[in-house]
């Protein structure tokens, strides 16, 4: 198990290194940082000073070395726009996104498992039809549209919920509600398919022959076997949320990492962009590791 984690960590390290190299050189390809950061009316003297302070006159490889050295100390440099360490800026935003993702995915997983399992129990029944239809709509509805409609209805029309921001519990309901819909639709469908398989398996027949009640047959015997493909999809969806739900965060003015990244790209605040990329990359690596561990936990035949 430990050697598996080490191997995975090593593989991820290589992708992180490639990422660092790519981000550094790509950001330089967009032009001279002095020209990018300073206002166009800045004097030649100011530009010279700027290059001096930021070591931009050194050979590019020296700059790269310094940059890597700083990274190893978790020093991503300062955010040019905010005049604070980029790492700090990103950490704050990431914490918001993390909370949003964890809450949403927990709700999605619980709801999708219950709905998908019950739909699979009576295939073609009334509940199955309703669940299949809703999940299909959920999986295909464009989230920006749902978000806008939700604001129009619940905030503007009914006045129940705030339109944007983060002040209270009420502020979380709309973003979570909207983010919930698509993964819920997808996961219900995967749970349903996987559960139909599991419920027609031989071991379920054995359980029925043993006189086990219906509920444990569904949620104990079949579900654990059916969870493997489901976990893969949950992982995918969670990764998408961790990357920052750009559109939703923007619409609801939610200070998450997705919104921060877009803002920073537009403002050419590359230190922040890089820090955001690194932190989400590491978060996604950790999450994939958790998913692999969940596989092993659910299925004793899987050993790393």
């Amino acid at each position: 198990m430990m050697s598996f984690i080490r191997k995975r960590a090593f593989a991820s390290l290589i992708s992180l290194i490639l990422l660092v190299v790519a981000v550094f050189f790509l950001s330089r390809l967009t032009g001279d940082p002095a020209a990018l950061y300073l206002p166009s009316e800045a004097s030649e003297e100011m530009r010279r000073q700027f290059r001096e302070i930021h070591g931009l006159n050194d050979p590019i490889l020296v700059q790269f070395g310094r940059y890597v050295w700083d990274l190893l100390h978790l020093d991503f440099g300062d955010s040019v726009r905010r005049a604070r360490p980029a790492f700090e800026v990103v950490s704050e935003a990431f914490l918001w996104t993390l909370q949003l993702a964890v809450i949403t995915m927990t709700l999605v997983t619980a709801a999708a498992i219950v709905v998908g399992s019950l739909a699979a129990f009576r295939v073609g029944g009334f509940f199955d039809r309703i669940a299949s239809l809703t999940s299909l709509i959920g999986a295909s509805a464009p989230d920006f549209w749902v978000a806008i409609v939700a604001i129009v209805v619940f905030s503007v029309g009914l006045g129940w919920l705030p339109t944007s921001g983060t002040g209270s519990v009420w502020h979380w309901i709309l973003p979570i509600g909207v983010l919930f819909i698509r993964p819920f639709g997808l996961i219900v469908q995967v749970v349903r398919g996987s559960m139909i398989n599991a419920l027609s398996s031989a071991y379920v027949k054995t359980a029925r022959a043993k006189g086990v009640r219906t509920r444990p047959i569904i949620f104990v015997h079949a579900l654990r076997n059916a969870m493997l493909p489901v976990i893969t999809v949950i992982g995918d969806q969670a990764a998408a949320l961790l990357n920052g739900a750009v559109v939703i965060e923007t619409i609801f003015g939610f200070p998450g990492v997705g919104k921060l990244m877009i803002d920073s790209i537009l403002q050419r605040d590359f230190n922040v962009v890089l820090a955001a990329i690194m932190i989400t990359a590491i978060a996604i690596f950790i999450m994939n590791l958790l998913i692999d561990l969940a596989y092993a936990l659910l299925d004793p035949r899987i050993r790393y």
Binding site: A207, A209, H221, R224, L298, P300, R301
Partner: peptide, 21 residues
């Protein structure tokens, strides 16, 4: 009645035992 009064065993015990318990 099932399991208590009448019980059953099957042809392929590997697939008839739940692999994850």
């Amino acid at each position: 009645v099932n399991g208590h009064k009448i019980a059953m065993i099957f042809q392929d015990p590997l697939s008839h035992l739940n692999p994850v318990y």
